[in-house]
Design a binder for these strands. Sequence first.
DNA 1: TTGATAGTTGACTATTTAGTAAACATCAGT
DNA 2: ACTGATGTTTACTAAATAGTCAACTATCAA
Lengths: 197, 197
Amino acid sequence: MEAVSELIWTGSYGSTTIDHICEKAGVKKGSFYYFFESKADLALAAIDAGWNPIRAELDALFSASVPPLERLRKYCDYNYRFQAGIKAKCGHVLGCPQFSLGSEVSTQDDRLPKKIQEILEYTRRYFESAIRDAHNAGLVDAPDAAAKSRTLLAYYEGLLTQARIQNDLEVLREAERSTFQLLGVKETQSAPVESNK
Amino acid sequence: MEAVSELIWTGSYGSTTIDHICEKAGVKKGSFYYFFESKADLALAAIDAGWNPIRAELDALFSASVPPLERLRKYCDYNYRFQAGIKAKCGHVLGCPQFSLGSEVSTQDDRLPKKIQEILEYTRRYFESAIRDAHNAGLVDAPDAAAKSRTLLAYYEGLLTQARIQNDLEVLREAERSTFQLLGVKETQSAPVESNK
DNA sequence: TTGATAGTTGACTATTTAGTAAACATCAGT
DNA sequence: ACTGATGTTTACTAAATAGTCAACTATCAA
């Protein structure tokens, strides 16, 4: 599963063959077919397995013990640092694995996009509760937390994909500022980061 | 080029073979290799050819004769109706062809993402000038038109990709409202569309 | 020790795919 | 009609790829 995840992420679903997966995993093809019926089957299992650590990370980032706007700030920061680590390791910004995969296979497969959709929806809820908490705390005026969270999700995924296409980390730099602008946060709080430009 | 564009868009770059392209185009493989060196070569030419009509459409939508915020509203509407037409024709929302392709091939190819990046940047400028005009007309408070346009671009592309993944047009419905919220437009103007919820 | 179960392997087939090269077709200019 | 240039097609090769299967091995409980 690690092998298939990495191959799809660093390349694409279409360019990832069962032979490549087996070679990378140090396993013969017969063994592969003993456990999985197809590449899609394996990918589905790999998405599931890969989601757990991410969810744990999100749980930490969006912990209720953290002030709501700080959660979003940390999420933006996490995204940047995570992609920076990836780029340092493999020479390329890779963006969101689920989103890239979903975009590629959505017209050819049913189960993968469905699973990915679940993950996206699950992720969105972290945003929604952070926005709702911020609203209730009077930090922002956002009675429409659900709608705002949908906007944020599309924005983040778009930004990550753009960073992947351009192989450029700088694209991600605007995330925090745009997030706060989108939510109508006063600029005073996020000033200490960078103010020139 | 029509054949390759449609095959990549309705499927993916990886799932589109030269044989399929030739079959769809009613041409033999020998002829293909007479004009193009590879699939990437053809795709590059097809992107170029396909961009012209889109640019013409954007020129019309973002005409300076149209009030700036109306341009963005029309763009959102155009996106929805365009994707709706696609879904009616082929049964699936397909999103932005350049963005999906770029995400898929960015780690395997250099020329395609570069060309796609140019198109994205070109498109962003329509947003930027609309925002700037709106700012100068006092319709919005957005001295940072360039930054706002980058945010909008990432958001639109993210939304279109999400619509593709979920094969759901409804995802696109929020575009206009989010656009105006992002720009800080007063709600009074866009009220007549839908207000309940 | 044995027997059964789970897992692995190598060798195999059939198909798809990229790419090539020579023969063939069309046609404008002479 | 001849020629050269521009395409087009047929037929082909080599490699990659998906998928199968019988034989083999490891593990472990009885």
